[in-house]
C-alpha cells in the first residue's frame, strides 16, 4: 500500500484518471443537454461503440487522427438523426428505443470489426500535448497539462455547456421544453425542433466520446465500452443535470478506475480481487442514486413524449 502513496505514483494515477474520465465526460455532457430537453437516450453505449469502431477503422486505413475524430462525431450525428426520428417525430417510448439503439450499435460494430479487421491491431494514439508554462508546474503540471487535445476539449466543453444552457435563447428553449413543453409550445417555441437539436448535440458528443475512447487506447475490440455509455447516462443523474456535477462524477469515475488499475499493477490487490474491485464503479453509482434520488429532481418532462392535447 505504501507503494501507492508515493508522489510519482499518485501523480501518474491522477493523470490516468483524468484521461479515463475524458470519454465519460464527453458523453455525459452531451447527455445532459439531451436530458435537459426531456429526452433520455439509453443508446449512448451503442453510439459510442459504433463511433469508436469507425474512428479506429479510419486511423487503421489512413493514419489520420483528426479525420478519425471527425468521423466519430459524424457517426454520432447520424445515430442522432435516427434516434430523433424515432423519439421526437414518431413519439416512441424513449427507454426501450434507446435499448434498441444500444443493441444495434453493439451488433453492428462487432459485425463490422470482425468482417473488416478481424483481429485487434494497435493503431496510433492521440499524442499528449504539453501546455507551455503550466505543464512545467511540478507534479500538477504533468497530471493536468500534459494531456491530449480531446481531454482539453472535454474540459473546455464544461463551461461551454453551462453557457449554452444558461445564457442563450436556445438553452432557455431547451430547459423549457424539458420542464414544461406545453408552456413552451404555447409561446411558439417548437418542442420538436428544440428536442431534435438537443438530441443531435447529445449524440454527436457520444460519438466524440467513442472516438476519444478508442484513440486514447489505440485499439478496438467488440464491446470495447463494456457499459461505459450506460455509466455516462447514470452520471447525468449523479451530477443532478448540471455540467459541474457531471464533471465531478466523471472525474470520480476516472480516478476510481485509475486507482484500481494502479493497485492491480502494484500487486496491492490480488489478480482475481481486481474483479471485485471492478465492481466498484457500478456499485458506487447505485449508492449515489440511492442517496440522490429524493434530493434532486429530474427535468419534469424527462422521457415524456410531447403531443398537444
Amino acid at each position: 500500500m505504501s507503494d501507492f502513496f508515493t508522489l510519482s505514483v499518485l501523480v501518474a494515477t491522477a493523470a490516468s484518471g483524468i484521461r479515463l474520465a475524458t470519454p465519460y465526460l464527453l458523453a455525459s455532457l452531451g447527455e445532459t443537454v439531451g436530458q435537459r430537453s426531456g429526452v433520455l437516450n439509453l443508446g449512448v453505449d451503442g453510439v459510442m461503440l459504433l463511433s469508436a469502431f469507425f474512428s479506429y477503422w479510419v486511423v487503421l486505413k489512413t493514419g489520420n487522427l483528426w479525420l478519425a475524430v471527425l468521423v466519430g462525431v459524424a457517426v454520432g450525428l447520424v445515430m442522432g438523426l435516427l434516434y430523433g426520428f424515432i423519439t421526437v417525430v414518431l413519439n416512441a417510448t424513449q427507454g426501450i428505443s434507446g435499448i434498441g439503439i444500444y443493441i444495434f450499435g453493439l451488433g453492428l460494430s462487432d459485425l463490422l470489426f470482425r468482417r473488416q479487421v478481424g483481429t485487434p491491431k494497435p493503431v496510433r494514439r492521440l499524442p499528449d500535448v504539453d501546455i507551455p508554462v503550466l505543464s512545467d508546474i511540478p507534479h500538477l503540471g504533468p497530471a493536468l497539462f500534459q494531456r491530449n487535445l480531446l481531454t482539453y476539449l472535454a474540459f473546455l466543453l464544461i463551461p461551454t455547456t453551462m453557457f449554452l444552457l444558461g445564457r442563450t435563447t436556445f438553452g432557455l428553449n431547451i430547459r423549457s421544453v424539458g420542464e414544461n413543453p406545453s408552456a413552451a409550445d404555447s409561446l411558439g417555441v417548437s418542442v420538436r425542433r428544440t428536442r431534435f437539436a438537443a438530441i443531435l448535440i447529445a449524440n454527436s458528443m457520444a460519438g466524440l466520446a467513442g472516438a476519444a475512447l478508442v484513440l486514447q487506447l489505440g485499439i478496438f475490440q467488440p464491446n470495447l465500452t463494456q457499459g461505459m455509455g450506460f455509466i455516462a447516462v447514470a452520471l447525468v443523474y449523479f451530477g443532478a443535470w448540471r455540467p459541474i456535477g457531471v464533471m465531478c462524477g466523471a472525474l470520480l469515475y476516472g480516478l476510481v478506475n485509475a486507482t484500481v488499475l494502479q493497485w492491480k499493477a502494484l500487486g496491492i490487490i490480488p489478480v482475481n480481487g481486481s474483479d471485485l474491485a471492478a465492481m466498484a464503479p457500478a456499485v458506487l453509482t447505485i449508492l449515489a442514486l440511492v442517496v440522490l434520488a429524493r434530493r434532486v429532481s429530474a427535468p419534469a418532462a424527462l422521457t415524456r413524449p410531447f403531443s398537444r392535447h
Binding site: 432557455l172 430547459r175 423549457s176 420542464e179 414544461n180 406545453s182 408552456a183 413552451a184 409561446l187 419534469a300
Partner: peptide
Amino acid sequence: HFMLVPTL
C-alpha cells in the same frame, strides 16, 4: 392550467 415553467 398556467403555462409557466416553474424552474425558470
